[in-house]
Amino acid sequence: MSDALAPSAAPPVSPLAPTPFLASWREFAAYLRRPVHQVPGSLKAPGAWRAFGALWLLDVVGLVVLLVVLTLYMKVTGLPGPDAFDQVPREWLVPLVVLAAPVIEETVFRGWLAGRPRALWLLGGLAALALAAMLLADGTPLRLAVVGLVLLAMPLGWYLLRKRAAPGWFGRFFPVIFWGTALVFGLVHLSNYPSPGLLALPLILPQVWAGLVFGFMRMRLGLAAAMLAHAGANALAVAPTFLGL
């Protein structure tokens, strides 16, 4: 989804400027307290790659701390660990987990955080397709008609809304949208665990944390930065499989 946005009704944050390494961590903490809707930044901005490195390291440090704590939690509760990687053939781990998943998940969960109507339209189309898959019987004329109409409407809406700026309500509700997206991103990953339930909810904290970091990176450094950071985190996650650990 394009980042070539017109300024929204919410006051935009100034473009990323060169900052000390740890200043990016402080900026992230401040952003969590008050997420602000803005025109997304870019990895081409001055100091962007330094900020990217700092935020990716912050993501990894947070994940390591959470994994240590949750390992103890699983021992106390007897909950099994994730089995998502066990369901993927080893030769497909890199193509699916490291390359495809970051692009797809960042597009679905954070590609529309800039608030452009055309991106929101596509998100609504994806939601409609998911509902059709869940509620309508496979192969029925109604399901085929709904899916066909949605697939036609998605590119048409993208074209017609291409020049529209983010609506004012998106900026007003952005803090809820930002945090809600990270929470939903975490909840979706409950499927990684063989025993999902209330007791397993703490196990998605690493994904919620990653969702917050990737969301901030998407807004400050662009969608490509979030995808790249996500791919790097997933690469670390699958590395033990290839190292025989």
Score class of each variant (00 low, 15 high):
25 W>I: 01
119 A>K: 00
173 F>L: 15
162 R>I: 08
6 A>I: 13
165 A>S: 13
53 G>L: 08
66 L>F: 03
200 A>G: 08
188 V>H: 02
100 A>W: 01
59 D>W: 07
100 A>T: 06
107 T>H: 09
102 P>S: 09
1 M>T: 08
214 F>I: 06
227 M>I: 15
189 H>F: 03
86 D>I: 08
166 A>Q: 00
224 A>P: 03
57 L>G: 07
214 F>W: 14
163 K>F: 11
50 R>K: 14
173 F>M: 13
203 L>W: 00
224 A>N: 12
194 P>I: 00
139 G>P: 02
170 F>Y: 14
16 L>I: 10
241 T>D: 10
64 V>C: 09
3 D>N: 13
46 P>G: 05
52 F>Y: 11
133 A>H: 11
110 R>F: 07
234 N>H: 09
44 K>Q: 13
123 L>Q: 10
122 L>I: 15
168 G>E: 05
124 G>N: 05
151 L>Y: 11
49 W>P: 04
222 G>T: 06
190 L>N: 08
197 G>W: 06
55 L>R: 05
73 Y>C: 09
144 L>K: 13
51 A>R: 15
111 G>H: 02
223 L>G: 01
140 T>M: 10
27 E>C: 10
150 V>H: 01
148 G>R: 06
55 L>Y: 00
66 L>R: 07
210 A>G: 15
113 L>G: 00
68 V>L: 15
30 A>E: 14
188 V>S: 07
90 R>F: 10
80 P>A: 10
228 L>E: 03
63 L>V: 12
235 A>D: 02
11 P>N: 04
56 W>N: 05
187 L>P: 01
